[in-house]
Design a protein around this nucleic acid. Structure first.
Lengths: 97, 97
DNA sequence: TCAATTAGTCAGAAAAACCTGACCTCAAAA
DNA sequence: TTTTGAGGTCAGGTTTTTCTGACTAATTGA
């Protein structure tokens, strides 16, 4: 993933660039994500790509990763505050289709 | 460039996916484009990539290609109506930076 | 203790995107 | 009539992204 650019919109588009990030982001808007169930929802995807996408979305500050220390101990990904600020743009994008 | 997707936002993001499309789109918002001058403005770019990006943006319906039959006969790319509907989203994207 | 589930990592291969340099067409200027 | 500028195309190679399959670690249930 490249980072530098002089065009702000380009930078933003890059946040959701990649084959799986837009879909993952959309699902994150709908609710918390967990690795294996996400993998099953993204038809044609694979562990590696989903893992990388999740890690990048987390590094970019769009998702928060939480370890849930209950019953079968799992990990949850939720939209961060920064992620939430992107919802309106994302929605506008959907309505343009 | 892939096309099919079930996520509308993804489809839209794809319209501006690729190394040069966001910059080209931005410049198109500012005014008509011509091939060689565009090439000079996009530092580090090359004929092939710019030609492909322009062709795709045109196919996607974001740019209109016009042959200007005057004096030195040239070709102009302008934002289409569909392209114009994307300006607000694009601007919002810029403000998120 | 053995198997299953969750959440990954890693190396290597395959596919997609991008770049380079040579070449082409058309029109006008020298 | 050779050169120049605009606007490209094309083959081939490099770089980036994505995918595959094997493997790991922690926890839990049988």
């Amino acid at each position: 993933m490249e980072t530098e650019s002089t065009c702000p919109a380009e930078t933003l588009l890059k946040l959701l660039s990649g084959k799986w990030k837009p879909q993952i982001f959309k699902l994150a808007v709908e609710g918390p994500l967990r690795f294996n169930s996400l993998l099953r929802q993204l038809e044609g995807s694979n562990k590696q790509s989903v893992a990388v996408a999740l890690k990048e979305l987390e590094e970019q500050g769009l998702l928060d990763k939480t370890i849930i220390k209950l019953k079968p101990l799992h990990i949850e990904y939720n939209l961060s505050e920064k992620g939430k600020t992107m919802i309106p743009v994302f929605m506008q994008l959907e309505n343009l289709a």
